[in-house]
Design a protein around this nucleic acid. Structure first.
Length: 273
DNA sequence: CTCCAGGTTCCGG
DNA sequence: CCGGAACATGGA
């Protein structure tokens, strides 16, 4: 299955490199990765998307080509930091990831740098996945902690295993979460071991299409403190959560991802110079 | 060697 | 409710 599509406002490289998904690898001027269990090659040239390994609707859905980006941008607050992030990230889309894969990947993300998260994802796929797809929840649930620690998960191994077991036993239903409102869905995800407010928000945003979810990690925390509360003495996490949910609006998750990527690339430029 | 990374959990004021 | 500390691992 191959296909081709003209997409006006989409930056494939930015979308795959911005830290929302971790397993796509450069190949022959494009990228190779999995959408669910299917191995996909995809490239973008001259505004055209060409791919092999999936049908049209799979590509449109996964890469969220139906998201109305201009409408979304129109809801962003206008301030120097947000304006700069938007100018830098136009065409970045929040994709629709499979829930288990997204949840598991972000459980392994805590206190890890982006390249390390990718490394863990690839090791798990190579070790336990069918044809390098992300390992099924039952597969992870059946592993012992040592097998996961061998994949360099460190203390996260226990959380990933317990979470997989809770889902495999049906104690938590990832499908049912899709039907819940944002607050209930977040609370349900937070019942899982190794899942707190931040990771729950990542899963809501990247897997459940809750485009208002606003994950606050060390990068975004820094951006908020330095750019939006430059001389606040004490800022509690609750205060930052409240501010960001109100200020960044109905597509706060999009705004967050643009701010995140802008902050990370800014540091990269500083380090190189 | 020290510092830090897309945090969570547990514990003491 | 809030601040601290522990927790694995690897790159800068």
């Amino acid at each position: 299955m191959t296909g081709e599509l003209r997409v006006p406002l989409f930056d494939l490289a930015l979308t795959l490199n911005c830290g929302q998904v971790f397993h796509w690898l450069p190949e022959a001027g494009g990228w190779r990765g999995h959408i669910g269990d299917a191995s996909i090659f995809i490239e973008q040239r001259d505004g055209r998307l060409r791919w092999a390994g999936a049908d049209d609707s799979t590509i449109r859905h996964y890469f969220a080509l139906d998201h109305p980006l201009e409408e979304i941008y129109a809801t962003f607050p206008s301030d120097p930091v947000m304006d700069a992030a938007l100018a830098q990230c136009r065409g970045l889309r929040i994709i629709r990831q499979p829930a288990w894969e997204c949840l598991a990947t972000f459980i392994t993300s805590s206190l890890k740098q982006v390249p390390h998260i990718a490394q863990i994802s690839h090791t798990l796929r190579r070790s336990f996945g069918k044809t390098h797809a992300y390992p099924a929840v039952e597969r992870i649930a059946a592993l012992d902690e040592a097998a996961l620690r061998a994949c360099k998960l460190g203390y996260r191994a226990k959380s990933l295993r317990l979470t997989a077991q809770a889902i495999a036993r049906g104690e938590i239903d990832l499908g049912a979460i899709r039907e819940m409102d944002d607050t209930a869905a977040r609370a349900e995800l937070c019942r899982l071991p190794g899942v707190g407010e931040k990771i729950a928000n990542c899963v809501l945003l990247f897997a459940y299409e809750r485009l208002r979810a606003f994950p606050i990690d060390v990068w975004i925390g820094r951006v908020l403190r330095e750019s939006y509360f430059p001389r606040a003495r004490k800022l509690t996490a609750a205060r930052l959560t409240k501010f960001s949910s109100r200020y960044f609006g109905p597509y706060g998750g999009y705004a967050q991802q643009y701010l995140f990527h802008a902050a990370r690339t800014a540091r990269r430029l500083r380090v190189e110079s």
